[in-house]
Design a protein around this nucleic acid. Structure first.
Length: 828
RNA sequence: GCGAGAGUGGUGGAAUUGGUAGACACGCCAGAUUUAGGAUCUGGUACCUUCGGGUGUAAGGGUUCAAGUCCCUUCUCUCGCACCA
């Protein structure tokens, strides 16, 4: 299916675009320096999510966000702002390494090649970046500071090593974070590369992001971010309040293991706990299982551990479990309740054990029904009569709030009160306390890969004491290796480079040490890149304090929603750590966030190579020009909406720019334009100004089209409207605007010209149309002067013969007059 | 199931604080130009109509002089999370 068609254009866009790109580059038109004479409120930091330089090059999704920020940046610049608008590359990552494993070429080679190609492509779009600030995360000058930040985390106890069950990918030979694993019909797989992954306990570097959970949650409040993204982050952090409660074992296997601790959000239902459940991985399972139940339990646990996560978490499947033979004592009523093991309880959440209250939890209800366990109602629905007789379980679990029943001296109290009082009581008994739990886990930070930042630590001496590499020895650079394949031992390829691994301990003791061979995940470099742009060539600091003060925080951050949780949460976490040690000036990095929508293929499906519906921006630039691509992508619809690509729509935009070109072929006259056109210009300036400011680019373009259509109908062209129009067009179609500006004899570049202003009085028409309604239906219209008085308008409306016909013989009820809009006669 | 967002012509989409629904663009129709096609230009284009008008913003109800916009109920779609105790 041909996506592009040849076009007969008389507008020499290729020539124009090359010319002005060269001009901007030579003159460093968009270079920005910290100038203290520019007041704070006239500085802006407008940021794009930097790309991973993949081998397939730019796709049409990239120009969407990049054009949006570019238009906004150019607009601000023309309005006298100093704007920091940088670009760089997130250049560590798996695809380059996988390619290296296959071909033997150094990932750096492939990466640099891709970066060069990306840079050319990005420049061909006429984006106004300050290229002097370009960064790439794989360069030692950059990752020196990524390592430096890691050491801060390490020194503050936020990085630690632990043996954890992790997702291990045999094909890639590496560990992945939970977030990098996706559930598929074929079981859990890696997000990147789509390889199967499995659970395996391994020693890993972890980052204590959970320590920041509350702040990451609370500080979302004040951010100007899409509600959906905030919701996703809240959900991911998953804070829930409740209590930890300890149940004594009826027959403890040992002194040390005499109780089971559970987390519950419903301590008020404690009297309804009729059994307990342990996760199959729970360490107590083996200890407490009675001899008679050993075989059953062992079989069950083995089966459960072999299940993929999908099987285990499939909601549709029936619950399963096994009785351990052991009993626990409910602390509130001394009741003996059975302890089961079941895989609907996850070891990774809470304490890996629960008290089951089947009457008030759907999952427990289902399980209890299946295994015929007792169900006791302890919360009566508020509407129901609270009596002993109504305290029988219904058809389903009742999970709402209500009034306590069957709960000893708590009977009759409402859920909120019981929650509080029961925990206070448990506290006195030493059996429990209030507790908060999070879904958020600590971040598994190490990867057994080559193409990432080496973790700058050395394991020294016999005991393997860990010594950080001091700042003056950073960066710890990647050694050359013979093979990029993982060591196969669960270690990275770096482990095989003996001369690199063996080193002197950096503490100066002369001991020998072994370098940490794990590398950081791809997220590391992108956690702080927005700070490096501030001061990209500084080799004594990650960024100078004055420069941070000058620009931060980021005023507008635009990128895809796919980074809603991971990148944005990690970056916020690192930023808060940097804030805590006092090296950045704000506790949040990105004040305002906007997600551009996905551009779908012309067939309405997500673009993919296999579907063959991928639109290549290079081809669009070649056939229609970068300005057409820019304006079209912005004209498609609201920035945040996902929308399908349309080649016809693209041609429509091209036609618009071509018309502008043909208007420019007229002789420019210095006498004034017809007043109607001047009015239209002022309306256009007003609308384009406010729409550009609010990122409503589609409607701004529509207004420019209206203006051009009108101007096109005129036979003449006057300077008084043409120059302001070119300036309006400049952020959108910068190449064309530069060319027209030069041809109009103005001083280049228009990119740095002043944004046009408008005269409010010229944005309104002198006469306008008033609609006349009878009982809310429009029956007539008439023209009248602007701001005509209410009485006069009503009289004019009443004088219309047709309206008289409607009013005759009817009783007037009231008349509503909205000045400059309408008259509504209400009659009976 | 939970959370977030969205339903407007043949299509993408416009519509200040409630105030003439469908801007702009695509597509389509007619005409001009052209040897023809393409390109370009002009005009038309929500639906129904007995040409008076009537009906229309997912469906139903409500508030109001007036509802795409506010409220309630239902349905559908997209995205995210998903046995989180």
């Amino acid at each position: 299916m041909p996506i592009l068609f040849a076009t007969m254009s008389r507008y020499p866009f290729t020539e124009i675009e090359k010319k002005w790109q060269a001009y901007w580059e030579e003159n460093k038109t968009f270079r920005v320096v910290e100038d203290e004479s520019i007041p704070r409120e006239k500085r802006r930091y407008v940021l794009d999510m930097f790309p991973y330089p993949s081998s397939s090059g730019l796709h049409v999704g990239h120009p969407e966000g990049y054009t949006a920020t570019d238009i906004y940046t150019r607009f601000l610049r023309m309005n006298g702002y100093a704007v920091l608008h940088p670009m760089g590359f997130d250049s560590f990552g798996l695809p380059a390494e996988n390619y290296a494993i296959q071909t033997g070429t150094h990932p750096r080679e492939e990466t640099e090649k891709n970066i060069d190609r990306f840079r050319v492509q990005i420049k061909s779009l006429g984006l106004s970046y300050d290229w002097d600030r370009e960064i790439s995360t794989h360069r030692p000058e950059y990752y020196k500071w990524t390592q430096w930040i890691f050491l801060i985390l390490y020194e503050r106890g936020l990085a630690y090593m632990e043996e954890v069950p992790v997702w291990y990918c045999p094909d890639m030979g590496t560990v992945l974070a939970n977030e990098e694993v996706i559930t598929t019909p074929d079981g859990p797989r890696s997000e990147r590369g789509d390889y199967p992954v499995e659970r395996k306990p391994l020693r890993q570097w972890m980052l204590r992001i959970t320590e920041y959970a509350d702040r990451l949650l609370e500080d979302l409040e004040d951010l100007d971010w899409p509600e959906s993204i905030k919701a996703m982050q809240r959900n991911w952090i998953g804070r829930s309040e409740g209590a930890n409660v300890r149940f004594a074992l009826a027959e403890p296997p040992s002194e040390a293991e005499s109780e089971i601790e559970v987390f519950t959000t419903r301590p008020d239902t404690l009297f309804g706990a009729t059994y307990m459940v342990l996760a199959p991985e729970h360490p107590l399972v083996a200890q407490i299982t009675t001899s008679g139940q050993t075989d059953v339990v062992r079989n069950y646990v083995e089966r459960a551990l072999q299940k993929s996560d999908l099987e285990r978490t499939d909601l549709a499947k029936d619950k399963s479990g096994a009785f351990t033979g052991a009993y626990a004592i409910n602390p509130v009523n001394e009741e003996r309740i059975p302890i089961w093991v079941a895989d609907y309880i996850l070891m990774s959440y809470g304490t890996g054990a629960i008290m089951a209250v089947p009457a008030h939890d759907e999952r427990d209800w289902e399980f209890a029904s299946m295994y015929d366990l007792p169900i006791r109602k302890v919360v009566a629905e508020p509407a129901a009569e609270v009596s002993v007789g109504s305290a029988e379980p219904g058809e389903n679990a009742y999970t709402g709030d209500g009034v306590a029943v069957n709960s000893g001296h708590f009977d009759g109290k409402d859920t909120a009160t019981v929650k509080r009082e029961i925990v206070e009581w448990l506290q006195q008994l030493g059996k429990g306390e209030f507790a908060v739990n999070y879904k958020l886990r600590d971040w598994i930070f190490s990867r057994q890969r080559y193409w990432g930042e080496p973790i700058p630590l050395v394991h020294c001496g016999e005991e393997g004491q860990i010594c950080p590499v001091p700042e003056n020895q950073l960066p710890v650079t990647l050694p050359e290796v013979e093979s990029y394949k993982p060591a196969g031992t669960g270690e990275s390829p770096l482990a095989r480079v003996e001369e690199w691994v063996h080193c002197e301990c950096p503490d100066g003791s002369g001991r020998t040490g072994r370098r940490e061979t794990n590398t950081m995940p791809q997220w590391a470099g992108s956690c702080w890149y927005y700070l490096r742009y501030l001061d990209p060539h500084n080799d004594s600091e990650f960024a100078a304090r004055e420069k941070i003060e000058y620009w931060m925080p980021v005023d507008l951050y635009v990128g895809g929603a796919e980074h809603a949780v991971l990148h944005l949460l990690y970056a916020r976490f690192w930023h808060k750590v940097l804030f805590d040690i006092g090296v950045v000036n704000t506790d949040e990095p990105f004040r305002r966030l906007v997600n551009q929508g996905v551009i779908m293929g012309p067939d309405g499906y997500r673009m993919s190579k296999s579907r063959g519906n991928v639109v290549n921006p290079d081809e669009v630039v070649e056939s229609f020009g970068a300005d057409t691509l820019r304006v079209y992508e912005m004209f498609m619809g609201p920035l945040e909406a996902s929308k399908p690509w349309s080649t016809n729509g693209l041609q429509g935009v091209h036609r618009f720019l071509d018309r502008v070109w043909r208007i420019a072929e007229r002789e420019i006259l210095d006498d004034p334009s017809p007043s109607e056109l001047v009015r239209l210009l002022h309306k256009t300036i007003k609308k384009v100004t406010s729409d550009t400011e609010s990122l409503d680019f589609n409607t701004a373009i529509s207004q420019m089209m209206i203006f051009v259509n009108e101007l096109f109908k005129q036979q003449t062209l006057h300077r008084d409207i043409w120059e302001p129009f070119i300036r309006l067009l400049a952020p959108y179609a910068p190449h064309l605007a530069e060319e027209l500006w030069e041809r109009a004899g103005c001083r280049s570049p228009v990119s740095l010209a002043e944004w046009p202003s408008y005269d409010e009085s010229l944005t309104h028409d002198d006469t306008l149309t008033i609609a006349v309604q009878v009982n809310g239906k429009v029956r007539a219209e008439f023209e009248t002067a602007r701001d005509t008085g209410k009485d006069r308008i009503e009289a004019q409306a009443r004088a219309i013969p047709k309206i008289q016909g409607y009013l005759e013989g009817r009783t007037p009820v009231r008349t509503v007059v909205v000045p400059n809009k309408l008259v509504n006669f209400v009659v009976k």
